[in-house]
Amino acid sequence: MKLVECPRDAMQGLHDFIPTAVKAKYINLLLQVGFDTIDFGSFVSPKAIPQLRDTREVLDLLDLAHTKSKLLAIVANLRGVEEAVQHQAITYLGFPFSVSETFQQRNTNSSIAQSLHTVEEMLNLCDQHHKTAVVYLSMGFGNPYGDEWNTEIVQHWAHELVNRGVKILALADTTGVSSPAKIKTILPALMNSFPQTEIGIHLHSTPQTRLEKIEAAYEVGCKRFDSALKGFGGCPMATDDLTGNMATEDLMAYLQSKGENLSLDLEKWLDAMAYSGKIFH
């Protein structure tokens, strides 16, 4: 069971800039909990995501000597890839690949075709620098723009990415439109089509529907879950409950109720929960 904690996703939409030392202290606490991966920052334009303009500085302040967690950084173009691969401490580079043309333009200022080329370049650079690419199939459950969406489109782009050498795919629900029925249809189809590929899930949700979505993914055999402490993020307004992230504590409680041994340090987890009030308030 791989749990990916996403402080980057939780923080990126906050309006007030979080001091670098505060970000680093928070992420250092999360690093001690024992998650498989920490999605800690992004190498994207400071104009696009001003909150994360200090990702390099945060990285320098992280204590990686006492953690088993690996670091993941998000990139949106080749410049970001070229910068991220230079950092030895980073294991994973995450790229948001949208199956919606409109959202791909909005999110990465490039077309799906251009993004496919970026993924190819990213895979080459990852190989050269001993990194692993994680590609998010964003808008994987539908989109609000009227772009055509169906399960065949999701399958098509997954096939294109896996054929190019992507080893980890995360099916992403960018706007909270997934449902247990959609999860139970799309996720097994991908897992069956690409048995050699690690398929995970990155869901956004209202608090009311979190549990049923976690349950749907778990029941079809999902072993990789993205989430964020207290469900923060997923929306520029941190207090907006509309489409926050999956709350890590909900995910942990559900998995533990199913007898999964998560091997997490719960004291450190409580420390991180307490400290989060300095960031999200």
Rank of each mutant, 00 (worst) to 15 (best):
G259L: 09
N261L: 10
L78S: 12
V135W: 03
S111E: 08
E83C: 07
Y254A: 02
D240W: 10
V135P: 01
T108K: 00
A172T: 15
T174F: 01
V162G: 07
D265Y: 10
T174R: 04
A181V: 15
L62Y: 07
G259H: 13
S69Y: 11
T151G: 15
V44D: 07
S42E: 13
Q12E: 14
I112R: 09
P96E: 11
L64V: 07
L123F: 03
S69N: 08
K182Q: 15
P96M: 04
Q104K: 03
R164T: 00
N143F: 03
M237F: 15
A48Q: 15
S178V: 07
W157H: 13
E267V: 12
M1N: 05
L29N: 06
A158D: 00
L61H: 08
V220M: 04
F141A: 02
N245T: 11
I27Q: 02
Q256W: 08
T175M: 15
A84W: 01
S179G: 09
F95E: 04
S205M: 06
S179H: 05
D226P: 08
Y136E: 05
G13W: 10
L137K: 02
P236G: 10
L264N: 09
S193P: 01
K182H: 10
L229M: 09
D173R: 08
D147T: 04
D271T: 06
I74E: 08
T20D: 02
D39L: 09
A89E: 13
Q51G: 09
V58K: 01
C126V: 06
G221M: 00
L203V: 01
G13D: 13
V75R: 02
Q155T: 12
I153W: 03
T102Q: 02
D250T: 09
W149A: 08
K184R: 13
Q208N: 14
Q104A: 07
I112M: 09
V4T: 07
L211I: 06
